[in-house]
Amino acid sequence: MLKIKDLTVNVGNKEILKGLNLEVNAGEIHAIMGPNGAGKSTLSHVLSGKSGYEVTGGSVTFNGKDLLEMPAEIRAREGVFLAFQYPVEIAGVTNVYLLKAALNAVRKHKGLSEVDAMDFLTLVKAKTKALEMDEKFLYRAVNEGFSGGEKKRNEILQMAMLEPQLCILDETDSGLDIDALRIVADGVNALRSPDRAFIMVTHYQRLLDYIKPDFVHVLADGKIVKSGGAELALELEEKGYGWLEQA
């Protein structure tokens, strides 16, 4: 599904990613861990099409198509979804309008008709309930005045509505208490499917107690320096990242 080859990325004049390789197939869950400043957020942003990052080398393909050539909205419509570390607050735009506009943009791209208003409401209410969110959130401005946990749940709600193929979770566990973490993790687990893949970018192993990865990669100094199974995360938790950087 996703193939990243020798990816190098600059921010300003500084090289942040220094030849990153990663292959993600449908049905897999990958965790990318690493110390602060290793390039984890840069990787999520580059995959989602945020501006301000200069790709200086390498390639990224998504289902065989050149992902880096696509504007951000086309990536989203093709099925790449980024759950933000810091979701933006948008005054005056209701959640329900954003969800509907986004869903219709994705459907149109796939050659489907606009969603029927009643069907949409039924769907969005069901998804909202599954994430233990109050329906009132739908009619509030996007993320405005939401707590950290509510913002992250809202990201998962958008993900559940858009049904992307590749979900990138950028530090989704940051700022969550245990209850919120469980709800978010349940939401993600409910979306697991043989057709869908996940990349979880995280500093801590905590999230991985709730969403069990198939692969764990350690990102340090712009490269993946070690890959393994779920047990690698536990080893990192115990030993920290220092031993990898020395090696």
């Binding site: 501006s51 989203a76 005054a91 986004a102 791209h109």
Partner: peptide
């Protein structure tokens, strides 16, 4: 950041700007 957030949800840039301007 708001424009990019909307784009990352599949909404094109022109529509994203309309949505944000309208909300204002």
């Amino acid at each position: 950041k708001s424009i990019f957030y909307l784009q990352s949800r599949g909404i094109d840039e022109v529509s994203a700007k309309h949505i944000l301007t309208f909300a204002f």
